[in-house]
Structure formats: structure tokens, C-alpha cells
């Protein structure tokens, strides 16, 4: 029996071409539903919002307006406030959370720690907790007469209750506390997974060679976790720049007091659904987030590139 190996005869090769064409058609047919969904719900809105960002007007009364939305950004105090707030949250919160997550992962990875499983679960749990439930809880705990204030006063750290939800500075602190509480465990799990892949004898060798514990952490653990740190930093940066849920829930969607916690995402939401809708301008603000995420991610990749 002859083996069906393709021969360079013209008949067979034209058959082969037809076969390839039908295979390729089959391929497209298989991917078509997914492509259609991605096209309708992802690509189209992205392009539509880009077009929309060049329109101005209230509600459905939209008119092409060129770059006027971009000009408006510069003269919009609420936008500038939201931009400053978002940047503040990102600059302050992400480093705190990353360092905290690293330290916690380092501690949880220690052989000498007992009940590691319990601590791991406890620290990870907040990120799977219901957002609304934890916001309500936080509002209760941080109320003027809440448990946090009464504890702080009981141990004599403060003389009078802190206005966590009424003072512009402390409101920002509360938002940072809330997102740190919620997302530290999530980042820590990545570090823990990476740490458990590091050969233990590397640390043993360093110990025998007299490298102190802090240097083992700083000069061995941190560099070996660099790819994971980069990943979590970018994910956290994107998350913080898009920050919406916590602020919305803690401040009843106002970003108060006095816009002191309003973020870009919350402002977009308000521009679209809370104030008189101005879809075009909201789309422009959305693209500010896109640009910020792109630039910051690029900078982080650039800073973490392998110099060797």
C-alpha cells in the first residue's frame, strides 16, 4: 500500500491549496463567535468612545467639537482634583502595599512560623470579601463614634475623635487603608508562590557565608522576585488608577468631603450618570486613564529591565 505523502504533482498541490483554504475557513468559523463578541463588546466601545471624546454637548445633543474637551480638562477644577487624588492614592498606596505584601510573604514563608496556613488565609481573605459588606463595615468602624476612634482614644493616641469621613485628609487616609487592607493579601499570594519556588539552599548558602537576614531579604529575595514584583506593581497601579468601588461605597458616590476623595473613575461615572450626562467629555477623561496606565506601565517595565 502506498503511503499518502504529498508529491509535487500539480493535481495534488491544487487539492492541497483547496484543503488549506477550507481548513483556514474552518478556523475562522470556530473563532468567529468569540471574535464577534470581542468586537461588539470591546473593540467597538473602545473606538466609539474615542470618537465620542471629540464630541461635546449634554445628553444626546452631541456635536463634533474637535479638541475642545481636551482644552476643557485643563480648566476643570474637579477633573484636576480627581487627577491629583488618583495620583496621590497611586503614589502613596501602591508602594506601601507592595512592601507590606513582600514582608508578609517573607514572614509566612519562614519555616519557624507556626499556623502559617491560618495567617495566609486570614491575610488573603479580604480580597474575596464582598465589597459592599466591607464598605459598610469600614464606615461603621471609622464613624466618629466608631470602634477605631474609641480605641485610639482609649489608648490615648488622640484626644478627640478623628473625622475619618468628614476631614479631607483623613478621608484620603481611610480610602488608602481600605484598599491596602483589601488588596495586600492578594499581592502577597503572588510573592508567596514565587518564594516557594526559590531553592532553599540559596538562603542556606547565604546564611553559612554570613549574610545577615536583612541583606538576604534585600539582596536575594527582592531581586529574585523582581518579575513578580513588576507584575504586581503594574496590576496594582492599574487598579489604583481605576479606583472606583471603595470610594463610591465609602462616600455614597460623592467622593467627599469636598471632592477630597474623588477619583478619575468616580468622576467619569458622575459625568455620565449623576450630573447632566456629558458623554463626550466623560470619554475624554476615560482616555486620560488609558494614557496614564500606558505611560506608567511603560515606565515600570523600563525601570525593571534587565540591565545585563
Amino acid at each position: 500500500m502506498a503511503l499518502s505523502v504529498s508529491e509535487p504533482s500539480s493535481g495534488r498541490s491544487s487539492q492541497g491549496r483547496a484543503g488549506a483554504r477550507s481548513a483556514s475557513l474552518n478556523g475562522w468559523l470556530f473563532t468567529a463567535p468569540a471574535l464577534a463578541l470581542i468586537g461588539i463588546f470591546l473593540v467597538y466601545p473602545i473606538l466609539r468612545s474615542l470618537v465620542l471624546s471629540f464630541y461635546a454637548g449634554k445628553g444626546m445633543m452631541l456635536k463634533p467639537a474637535g479638541f475642545s474637551n481636551i482644552v476643557r480638562l485643563w480648566n476643570d477644577p474637579i477633573f484636576l482634583k480627581a487627577l491629583v487624588n488618583t495620583t496621590t492614592f497611586f503614589v502613596v498606596q501602591v508602594p506601601i502595599m507592595i512592601v507590606l505584601a513582600l514582608l508578609l510573604a517573607g514572614m509566612l514563608n519562614s519555616d519557624r512560623l507556626r499556623f502559617a496556613g491560618f495567617f495566609r488565609t486570614a491575610i488573603f481573605l479580604p480580597c474575596v470579601a464582598s465589597l459592599v459588606a466591607y464598605s459598610v463595615l469600614f464606615k461603621g468602624m471609622f464613624a466618629v463614634d466608631g470602634v477605631v476612634n474609641s480605641t485610639l482614644m482609649a489608648i490615648g493616641l488622640v484626644d478627640q475623635p478623628i473625622g475619618w469621613l468628614t476631614d479631607p485628609f483623613w478621608a484620603k487616609v481611610l480610602v488608602i487603608l481600605a484598599i491596602t487592607w483589601r488588596w495586600t493579601g492578594y499581592n502577597m499570594i503572588f510573592y508567596l508562590a514565587a518564594l516557594q519556588n526559590i531553592d532553599k539552599s540559596i538562603y542556606e548558602a547565604a546564611r553559612i557565608d554570613g549574610v545577615p537576614a536583612w541583606a538576604r531579604f534585600l539582596h536575594l529575595t527582592v531581586p529574585m522576585l523582581k518579575p513578580v514584583i513588576l507584575f504586581t506593581t503594574i496590576i496594582s497601579t492599574i487598579g489604583t488608577i481605576q479606583l472606583f468601588d471603595e470610594v463610591y461605597n465609602l462616600t455614597e458616590g460623592r467622593g467627599g468631603p469636598a471632592d477630597s476623595t474623588i477619583t478619575l473613575s468616580l468622576y467619569i461615572y458622575n459625568l455620565t450618570f449623576r450630573y447632566m450626562p456629558s458623554f463626550g467629555y466623560a470619554a475624554t477623561v476615560s482616555y486620560v486613564i488609558v494614557v496614564m496606565v500606558a505611560v506608567l506601565s511603560f515606565l515600570q517595565f523600563y525601570a525593571a529591565r534587565d540591565k545585563a
Partner: peptide
């Protein structure tokens, strides 16, 4: 580190 020893590991344990 104070025992005056140095150790070579099976996995090399290089940084």
C-alpha cells in the same frame, strides 16, 4: 557563619 566552614550544595545554590 562563625564556624569557619564553607559549603557547596548539590543544587549549586548560586544567586
Amino acid at each position: 557563619s562563625q564556624r569557619g566552614i564553607a559549603m557547596v550544595f548539590q543544587s549549586y545554590a548560586l544567586y
